[in-house]
Nucleic acid binder design. Structure first.
Lengths: 195, 195, 195, 195
DNA sequence: AATGAATGAGCCTTCATTCAT
DNA sequence: GATGAATGAAGGCTCATTCAT
C-alpha cells in the first residue's frame, strides 16, 4: 500500500486555487486541476469525495488559514492599539497571501457556497476571538456600537480591496500608503479623537 | 445578427441574471437561459454573437443602469450634502434593484471580466461624473485627498454589503439603521467636523 | 428546424437491441449505440431522456410488437384450436423476430427492470386478450385450471427456448420438429384426450 | 495468484452473487464486490485473474452446486418415479437456494457466457448423469423420445419459474401447489397413463 | 498475502454552437 | 427571424487493473 499523501492533497488544493484565481470559479474543471497538479484525474477521488467536496475543503482551508493569521489579537488589551494591530495583520498577511483573500472573495456569498453545503457556523469558525475582540472594544466604548459584520466592512474589506487594487496596478502605494487606509478605517470605527 | 425584438433581448438578459443570482455564474448555460426566457436556444444567436458576448452585454447593461441611478449628483454643489445624497441614491436604488448590484459583485474584478474582454474603460463608463464629483469634494478640502477607488470602498461597498446582509437576514435594519452606515462612511471620508 | 426523425429513433432502438443481443445487456453503452446507429452521442438525448429511458422504450416497444403478433386470437372460439394457433403464432413470429423474444428474455425479471421503473401493468399491457383467451379455455374446461403465468411457462417459454436452441445449433429441427413441442405443450395444458 | 484462504474466496463469490441478484449483472463492479466482501480491491487479484475469471468461477461454481443437488437420481431405476423425484429435487433445492438458480438464469445463454469463455462442455459438466437418466427413461419408452434440452424446458424450467413467481408474490402456492406443476410436467413428458 | 493509492480509459451527460427548415 | 435537431468536445465520475508498500 502507498500511504495517502498530504503533500499531494495540498497540491490539489493549490492547483484549484490557481485556476480560480486566473480563470475564475466557473472555469474550474477536474481535468484542469489534475493536469495542473500533475496527477491522474481519477486520483482526485482518493482525496475528495467529489468536486464539491474539494471546493468545500479549499474554501474552509483558506478561511482557516486567514482566521489563524488575522485573529492573533490581545482580546482584552487596548482596543485602539488592537484595531491598529488587526489592520496590520490583514495587510501583512495579504502581502504574502493575497490569493487566499481573493479566493474567499471569489466564493463570495454567492449561490456556490450554498451548493457546497457550508453552514454559517462553518464559515465563521475561527473568527470567534475576533468577535470577542470587537465586543471588548464596544464595551469599553472605544468602537462604535455596531454589528461585527459592519465593522468588518469598514476594516477588513477596505484593506483587501486596497491590496487588490495595488496588485492590479489601479493604485499606487507610494501615492496612497496603507497608513491612509488605516486612518480612514480608524476614523470610521473608533469613537473619540478619531481625527 | 441584428436584434429585432428589444423585449426579447431584455428577457434573455433577465433570465441570465436570474440564473446567476440563484445558481451562480458557473451554472449559466444557454439552454437554461433559452428555457427560462421562453425562446429556442438557436435564437440567442440572433441577439448575441456568443455566450461571452451575452455575459458582456449583461454586465455592461447592469453597470450602466447602476451608473445612471447613482450618478445623478450636483457635481459642483456642496460636497457634504452631495456625499449624503450619493449614499442615499445607492441605498434607494439598492432597495429595488439589489440584484443588479449583486450581479456586478458576482462578476467582481474576477478573471471572468478579462475573458469577456471588458476593458477598464468600459467598466467605468458612466461613472465619470462621479469622479468629477469626488474631485470637487477633494479640491474643496471636504473629502480626504485619496483615490476615487478608495472612496468607493468606504462609501459604495459598505452600503451594498449592508443591503445584502439585511436581505440574507444577517442584519436587522431596526437595530442597525442605514443612518449608522452613512455616519460611519461620512466619518471616514469627510474631513472636518465629521460628527 | 429539422423535424425529429422517427426513422432515427427506430435506428437507435435497433442498434441497442443489436448490442444487447451480441454483447449482453451489461455491455450497452451510449457511445456504442451512437456509433452503431450512425449518429452523434449527444443526439441520443434528443430522442430519449437518458439511458434508462431508452432501455425502457426499447423493452416496451419490443414487448408491444410481440403482444401484437401473438395475441391475434379468436378469444371465444374453440380453445383447442386456439391453443394450437397461439403456439403457431409464437413460432411464426419467432422465425422472423427471434431477437425480440431474446431481448425480452435478456431483460428477464432481472433487477434491471426495476431500475427502469417498468410497472407490472406496463409489462403486461397488450396481453389482456391473451388472458381472456385463457379464461375462456379454462371456463370451457378445456385448459387446466391454473394460473395464466403457469400456462405461459408451458406454452410460450418452451417455444422460445426451442427456437433459440435451433439458432444456437443445439437442436436439429429435422430431428425435433416443432410439431413435437406443440404436442408436449398440448399434453400439459389441454385436459381431455390429451394423448 | 494461488488462493490461500478458501473462506475468502467463497466470500468474494457470495458478494458477487448478491450484487447480481439485487442490482443486476450490469451493476457488478470489483470495488463493490471488495467492499461487500470486506477485503481490499487489489486482493481480488490474488484469487482471480481478472473480473471475467471471477464471473466465470461464480457461474461454474453455482452450476456445479446445482448439478450436485439435482442429479442424485437412480439412473437405472423406474423412470416415472425418477422423474417425480427429479422435480422434487429441484423444488427442494430451490426452496433454500433459489438465488443460485436465478443467478444461472441471469447469465442465461446470453452473450456474456461467450465473453467468459465458457464452453458448452463446461456448462454441462456435472449433468452427464442426468442425461443418462433421461436416456434410460426414453429407452424404456416411458419418456417421450425427445431431446434432453427439451425435457429440461418442460421439467426444470417450469419449476424455477414457479418458485420465482412465488417469491415475487405473483403466484400463491396455496392456490397453485407444486403438485400441479409436477402434474403438468408429467403429463407433458411421461408417455402413458400420464394422468 | 494483503493493502489501497494511483492510473487513464471509458462511462453518461451537458455544453456551446451550427444550420436545415 | 425563429426553431430545435444535430454535433462532438468536454464535463464529472467510476471502472478494472497495477504495484509500491
Amino acid at each position: 500500500m502507498r500511504a495517502q499523501d498530504d503533500e499531494k492533497r495540498k497540491r490539489i488544493l493549490d492547483s484549484t486555487s490557481n485556476i480560480i484565481m486566473t480563470q475564475g470559479i466557473a472555469a474550474v474543471s477536474l481535468s484542469k486541476i489534475a493536469k495542473n497538479a500533475g496527477i491522474a484525474s481519477g486520483t482526485l477521488y482518493t482525496y475528495f469525495k467529489d468536486k464539491n467536496d474539494m471546493l468545500r475543503a479549499l474554501y474552509l482551508n483558506r478561511k482557516e488559514r486567514i482566521a489563524e493569521a488575522i485573529t492573533q489579537l490581545d482580546i482584552n488589551g487596548d482596543p485602539r492599539q488592537g484595531f491598529n494591530h488587526f489592520m496590520d495583520l490583514i495587510y501583512d498577511y495579504g502581502q504574502e497571501h493575497l490569493d487566499e483573500f481573493v479566493l474567499i472573495r471569489e466564493f463570495g456569498q454567492s449561490p456556490i457556497l450554498k451548493s457546497l453545503n457550508i453552514s454559517q457556523a462553518e464559515a465563521y469558525a475561527g473568527f470567534e476571538s475576533l468577535e470577542e475582540f470587537v465586543q471588548n472594544g464596544v464595551s469599553k466604548q472605544v468602537f462604535f456600537d455596531i454589528d461585527f459584520q459592519v465593522i468588518l466592512d469598514y476594516a477588513y474589506t477596505p484593506v483587501i480591496e486596497y491590496l487588490i487594487s495595488i496588485q492590479n496596478g489601479n493604485l499606487d502605494p507610494n501615492k496612497i500608503p496603507f497608513e491612509q487606509i488605516k486612518m480612514l478605517s480608524t476614523r470610521a470605527i473608533i469613537m473619540e479623537e478619531s481625527k
